[in-house]
Design a protein around this nucleic acid. Structure first.
Lengths: 216, 216
DNA sequence: GGAATAGTGTCTCTAAGACAATATGGA
DNA sequence: TCCATATTGTCTTAGAGACACTATTCC
């Protein structure tokens, strides 16, 4: 009997200023009825590769086509699934607006219930990776809506890392990364303060989906 | 028919100052007789997880128990293996002394022959990762013998990256990383010059094998 | 004008590169 | 002694954080 091969996807988003993950109520055994990471088997006829399988699961189960999807790594062994020796290729995806539905619920990563299999550990490791990448890359831009301001992005970084960052240095850093471009003329007003310049993700930083196969 | 699940290992070493990879002559179809990455199926009864399978393959096929072994990622799809939709979990390992044998040959990564499956691409991607990690981590210490000097380690970094590095800054950097410790009193003499202090990898940086499951 | 937040300028500090100066064992 | 390389010290430069200052809108 060959090992059980599955893929799982951790779809992350910022909800109410908290890094959160979309979980789905399992509709079959084992652990039927419990929330878990969306996942499934590879469909050899329709999935080009495991990343394709992850995209399909995102579309079918979560109804999202997120701008960022990357393989995280595998989790395998005899004990993690009651059905036997199994291997799952875990992916993580970032989105601005996860869809809440009767079956899908978005949990802050700090307030997860007990999950089946090793999904608590998987999420913990994915979050660790996302926090790590946040410290040196523009990854969190993929958690933002199409248009956003620097202060909004700054707040997202602070929410993900759980610590304050210097805003002036942050400005210099995002400038230097070249991941953003101004939306000409557009300013965002919030309250009775100076309006902020609106930005969007630069073209070459969008849609990692199409850059198949290149890690990072 | 479920996907074919295999693991492959890219064992890297520095041979004659060149980053090199150990390839093994395949003893069965497909591509029998060609050099390829050592790999194989997961043995559900003896492999704790895919990393365990990689360790077993290293031991059985290459007769090494390297100090560093890490999962790289997966390669999957319909086209990469003539037998059908397949997935391989690629690992990379670092060693100081790869064993050359009738079946195993060590090739400089810049002078690889055409390899079966997608093994040329796999090796290219692994090398890219190792070079990247070399720029910001102490990874290359695992390519060194038990005892070595800073200038020797410096030469290893230059060989991996293919570019010159400032030796004084390099000293400061390895100092700061805390990955090394002096071997008290031991000096290495080479030629008629001042002898160099001998170092070894600090305990907590050895044997990533035991730190199962933690990426990086 | 005042409140509140956006954005800029400047100072300091740290880390890295360049490179000069010193150290040491073998020939 | 000299040669060759190891090791240290110093100067300069680039980038990040701290923080004060200016800008702009609504009230």
């Amino acid at each position: 009997m060959p090992p059980i091969l599955t893929i799982d996807v951790a779809l992350l988003a910022l909800v109410d200023g908290q890094l959160s993950v979309a979980l789905i109520k399992r509709d079959k055994a084992p652990s039927e009825g419990l929330y878990a990471l969306p996942g499934g088997y590879v469909h050899e006829d329709e999935d080009e590769d495991v990343k394709g399988a992850a995209e399909r699961v995102l579309k079918e189960k979560l109804a999202v086509k997120p701008p960022y999807l990357e393989e995280f790594g595998t989790f395998s062994g005899k004990l993690r699934d009651p059905r036997g020796w199994s291997l799952t290729v875990v992916h993580y995806a970032l989105t601005a607006d996860p869809v809440d539905s009767p079956l899908v619920k978005v949990f802050p990563v700090g307030k997860l219930p007990g999950l089946p299999f090793d999904h608590n550990e998987i999420i913990a490791r994915v979050v660790e990776r996302v926090r790590s990448k946040t410290t040196y890359s523009s990854l969190p831009v993929h958690l933002m809506p199409k248009k956003f301001t620097i202060p909004e992005l700054h707040a997202a970084y602070e929410a993900i890392l759980g610590e304050r960052m210097n805003l002036a240095s942050f400005r210099r850093k995002v400038d230097g990364m070249g991941a953003l471009e101004e939306v000409p003329g557009e300013m965002r007003v919030s309250g009775r303060s100076r309006p902020a310049q609106v930005y969007r993700v630069a073209l070459r930083y969008r849609s990692k989906l199409s850059l198949r196969g290149r890690g990072l």
